[in-house]
């Protein structure tokens, strides 16, 4: 049972990988032209030191993705390259490859997103659970309206406000970048604390905005769960209030909440891209912004592919963890 479940989920993951590659290949063609070739030719025409390399690239691109080749063959070449994680050179940063640039930026984004998502999910879920619990302190309730209001605005917009307040007005925190200019990168205390200082505002703008959403969702699940027969029976069994709360209510309400997390990852990432842009945080989002500014098609495609696959992977992990949370799942047909 378990194996079949995991196999099926892995199949979905492969489907997502294929989908990402396919989107990358076909979407640029919907306008009828080949924006990649256009950009390549433009860049090659600019000339400069890396001229010969660029011409090489154009030649190579033409033989493999030339208009004379059948679309299916081009598609095949593209899938082959992608399967080897070969996204070609960055057009704007030639001779650096797209893969290099992505590998450089990825840890920043993964670090920022993993921390903020885990924190906001945990805090929000806990708040929501407490909010639905009749015995929790009253002042919690007064905490919520501002968090719900925050939840309605986009991450980056709140980020702008934070920049203004804490970086511009009182200048407690740096407003831009992932580390101070000229800092020596490495695992030194100095650099790590520098990065931490630079991450506080971007992280806060994601956390403070998301917490309210998770709290709201969890409160809803808790209200539903607390009406369930097994909670009534648990109380009739004379279980301690904390047992009923944690092991019966929260434990069950967390299930739909986890599903919601898997579904929200894409949205969180979309929001984080913009946060990176306004904070100049040197992750995938800022790299993407730069690629868009320079119309660096290869880089854009590489990033889109990497991000979709990374999120697919995160979803896969959540899916595999899920039956461990909910023993019913591996037996039930997927529903």
């Amino acid at each position: 049972m378990q194996a079949a479940y995991i196999a099926r989920r892995f199949g979905v993951f492969l489907l997502i990988v294929w989908l990402a590659a396919t989107l990358n290949f076909f979407l640029p063609k919907i306008s009828g032209q080949d924006p990649v070739r256009t950009k390549l030719l433009q860049q090659a025409a600019l000339g400069g030191a890396v001229q010969s390399g660029m011409e090489e690239m154009v030649k190579e691109y033409n033989t493999r993705f030339g208009l004379d080749r059948p679309l299916l063959a081009q598609y095949g070449s593209y899938l082959y390259d992608t399967a080897h994680l070969d996204f070609n050179y960055s057009i704007a940063n030639y001779p650096r490859t797209v893969r290099e640039l992505i590998i450089e930026a990825l840890p920043w984004t993964v670090g920022l997103l993993a921390t903020t998502t885990l924190l906001s999910f945990t805090i929000g879920t806990l708040l929501g659970a407490l909010l639905a619990w009749p015995r929790s302190p009253r002042w919690l309730r007064t905490l919520m309206p501002p968090l719900w209001a925050l939840h309605a605005i986009p991450f980056f917009l709140f980020g702008l406000i934070l920049i203004y307040l804490f970086a511009f007005q009182v200048q407690w925190l740096p407003m831009f970048g992932g580390y101070s200019p000229g800092a020596v990168q490495g695992f030194t205390w100095r650099f790590v604390s520098d990065v931490a200082m630079h991450s506080i505002l971007p992280a806060l703008s994601i956390i403070l905005v998301s917490v309210g959403g998770w709290a709201l969702a969890m409160r809803g699940m808790m209200v539903t769960t607390m009406g369930e027969d097994y909670v009534v029976f648990a109380e009739a069994e004379g279980l301690r209030a904390t047992t009923v709360f944690l092991r019966y209510c929260v434990r069950n309400a967390i299930l739909p909440q986890t599903t919601a997390l898997a579904l929200a990852l894409g949205q969180i990432l979309s929001g984080a891209v913009l946060v990176e842009v306004i904070f100049g945080f040197p992750g995938i989002g800022a790299l993407l912004f730069q690629a868009i500014q320079e119309n660096d098609q290869f880089l854009i495609q590489g990033i889109v592919f990497t991000v979709i696959v990374a999120l697919g992977l995160a979803t896969l992990v959540l899916d595999i963890v899920y039956p461990w949370l909910d023993p019913r799942i591996s037996y039930r047909k997927l529903s």
Binding site: K29, L265, G266, L288, N295, V304, G312
Partner: peptide, 14 residues
């Protein structure tokens, strides 16, 4: 599962 903004970016860039 796919982050919408990225696909939209791809379309818009194209």
């Amino acid at each position: 599962t796919v982050p919408g903004l990225l696909v939209l970016i791809l379309i818009a860039v194209s």
